[in-house]
Nucleic acid binder design. Structure first.
Length: 586
RNA sequence: CGGGGUGUGGCGCAGUUGGUAGCGUGCCUGGUUUGGGACCAGGAGGCCGGGAGUUCAAGUCUCCCCACCCCGACCA
């Protein structure tokens, strides 16, 4: 029994000034967590209970698919991460330290290497596979900007697991097992989620999906279809097959377009001086050619021009996801000047492409379909060309998903309109493939005695982040509202009487009886605290069922309040225990 | 790393033209209260983020640094 007269907790009347998002504000105000360091939080007794409940649900579901828990040191030697190149590649986000002998160490941000080496250490036969291992441990990342309390810290609790299989079919099964387990985990937590397609990126895998809690304060932007069940991270959105433009277009013509440095001014000029007969020109008739620099992992760079419709923005992150591990940046002025074939503001595809005069690689967004006609730069100042047709008048080196996805874009699955939403990444399932096994030499002998490289999957759940996400999903102006599965206790009893009177005696008895039934109870037995304060605290702390033992005891009743529904029901004292037990167990 | 903001008792804040710090809340003691953050009285609690400077005198002015929050960049 947690007696509020002794529980180590202090609720705050005011919002802490450094907290912005609801989960952060309320978890601090209700006495669940305290900030202890930049991006680091102390878990107080109530918060610790919630965290452990989430952790246990995750653990049970991992065990249920046959995954086995292990525990690593947080302090890891440099050489392990050197082998995979991550000591340098991970960059500033890695916490590095030096021991007394001058040896380099790091605090684990994620544990692919450790798991891979652990399996290599012990297993060497196909007969040992498949196997899935997991850990629930604190991860350390030196985030550039920790924010939003628990949502992005520098130290956080995460469950990550890794599957090891001999072949693709095995990996697919391990992946699906984890995916199913994650669905069960988030369902049990009561946390709404959306599964979105994600980019596998530099990790070199294939299948990758994120579990997002659709919450406004989330940092991830994703799209979902308003009609079918398609959902994807914005970087991973693919454009559906678009029909080629088969219409007849006029021959190309060059026009003088003085003082038209922007798309808007160009369109205005055209409508005034070279109007179309069928309709007016618009930004979507223009082809915008964006000059980028590709920075390869070995340090070399190469230019890339991407063509998109003039009414659309370019999404560099989306491009980057497709050219990974290369990085993409806008071309700087100095580099631009080294390409005399490029005329700033008047770049056209006639001089672009591997076979062209400049030899600069040229890629088109798929929305620039074959056969479509465009207004674009004529590669000389103050001059544009009209009716330049893709395939007739120029050829690109290929297509690349380049435009910033916008609400209203067609769904690649069903063609209806997409919407944009925000979410918190609470889980990620991912087919890693053989990248780590290759680099670290994790092989086993197959049935023919031949060495084969093991294929891996990687699967994460942010445990501490899930606590914050649930707080985001379930709260109101006055406090938290925990789902039963992770509430720190089952029932919160408010006793409004004075020490030793009938009311406090009845409250004590009810608490004992409920506990005897196996329920966890908070008893607000504070003496000399006014009922109003007790009600406010109960609502702030957010236990789903609040029982008030107070003035209605005179009529033989207690009040049973539902924090989620906001209801208040008078229940006879005699049946109170049974009533509450059935509520909690339902 | 760029832009903006804030640092003053535990928490939330005020502090004017420079004159040696105050309010609310919380905490302690005594008393009165007890169904929606009660009341009275008396208390404890502050190196005003740090450093350097200007001045007879700095919370207040100047310079430098640090921390935190927000936006952006970044983010398995």
């Amino acid at each position: 029994m947690l007696r509020l007269s002794h529980l180590f907790v202090r609720t705050l009347r005011d919002d802490p000034s450094d907290a912005e998002v609801p989960s952060h504000r309320l978890l601090v105000r209700a006495g669940y967590i305290r900030r202890a360091a930049p991006g680091g939080y102390t878990w107080l007794p109530l918060g610790w209970r919630v965290l452990r409940k989430v952790e246990n649900i995750v653990r049970e579901e991992m065990d249920a698919i046959g995954a086995q828990e292990v525990h690593f040191p947080a302090l890891l030697p440099r050489d392990v991460y050197e082998t995979t190149g991550r000591w340098s590649e991970y960059g500033d986000n890695l916490f590095r330290l030096v021991d007394r002998k001058g040896a380099d160490y790091l605090l684990g941000p994620t544990h692919e290497e450790m798991f891979t080496l652990l399996v290599k250490d012990l297993y060497s036969s196909y007969k040992d596979l498949p196997v899935s291992l997991y850990q629930i441990q604190t991860k350390y990342r030196d985030e550039a900007r920790p924010r939003a309390g628990l949502l992005r810290g520098r130290e956080f609790l995460m469950k990550d697991s890794y599957s090891f299989d001999i072949d693709e079919a095995g990996l697919a099964k391990s992946y699906n097992d984890h995916r199913d387990a994650y669905e069960r985990i988030f369902t049990r937590l009561g946390l709404p989620y959306v599964i979105v397609k994600a980019m596998s990126g530099a990790m070199g895998g294939s299948m990758s999906e994120e579990f997002l809690a659709p919450i406004e304060v989330g940092e991830d932007t994703f799209v979902r279809c308003t009609s079918c069940d398609y959902a994807a991270n914005t970087e991973a959105v693919t454009t559906g097959a678009l029909a080629a433009d088969s219409s007849e277009h006029p021959a190309t013509s060059t026009v003088s377009t003085p003082n038209c440095p922007t798309i808007a001014s160009l369109v205005e000029y055209l409508n005034t001086n070279v109007p179309r007969t069928d309709r007016t020109w618009s930004a979507s008739d223009t082809l915008k050619n964006v000059v980028l620099t590709l920075r390869n992992p070995d340090g070399t760079t190469s230019p890339l021009v991407v063509g998109v419709p003039g009414d659309r923005e370019v999404d560099i992150k989306r491009i980057e996801a497709q050219v990974s591990p290369a990085e993409v940046e806008p071309m700087d002025d100095a580099t631009f000047a080294k390409h005399p074939g490029l005329v700033r503001g008047y770049i056209g595809p006639q001089v672009l492409g591997a076979e062209s005069t400049t030899g600069i690689r040229y890629m088109l967004d798929p929305s620039v379909v074959p056969g479509s006609a465009w207004v674009t730069g004529a590669n000389q100042k103050d001059t544009h060309v009209l009716h330049l047709v893709n395939g007739r008048d120029f050829t690109a080196d290929g297509t690349i998903e380049a435009v910033e996805v916008a609400a209203g874009d067609p769904c690649p699955n069903c063609g209806k309109s997409l919407e944009i939403a925000r979410g918190i990444e609470i889980g990620h399932v991912f087919q890693l493939g053989r990248k780590y096994a290759d680099k670290l030499g994790l092989t086993v002998l197959d049935q023919n005695g031949k060495q084969v490289v093991v294929t891996m999957g990687s699967y994460g759940v942010g445990v501490s982040r899930a606590v914050a996400s649930i707080a985001e999903a379930f709260h109101d102006d006055i406090g938290l509202k925990w789902p039963r599965a992770i509430s720190p206790v089952d029932v919160h009893i408010v006793v409004t009487g004075k020490n030793g009177d009938d009311i406090t005696v009845a409250g004590e008895q009810l608490a004992k009886d409920l506990e005897a039934q196996g329920l966890d109870v908070i008893l607000d037995d504070r003496n000399g605290v006014s009922p109003g304060v007790k009600f406010k605290d109960a609502e702030l702390m957010g236990i789903p069922t609040i029982v008030v033992v107070g003035k209605s005891l005179a009529d033989g009743n207690v009040e049973v309040r539902d924090r989620h529904a906001g209801t208040n029901e008078a229940i006879p004292v005699a049946s109170a225990v049974q009533h509450v037990v059935s509520l909690v167990r339902s």
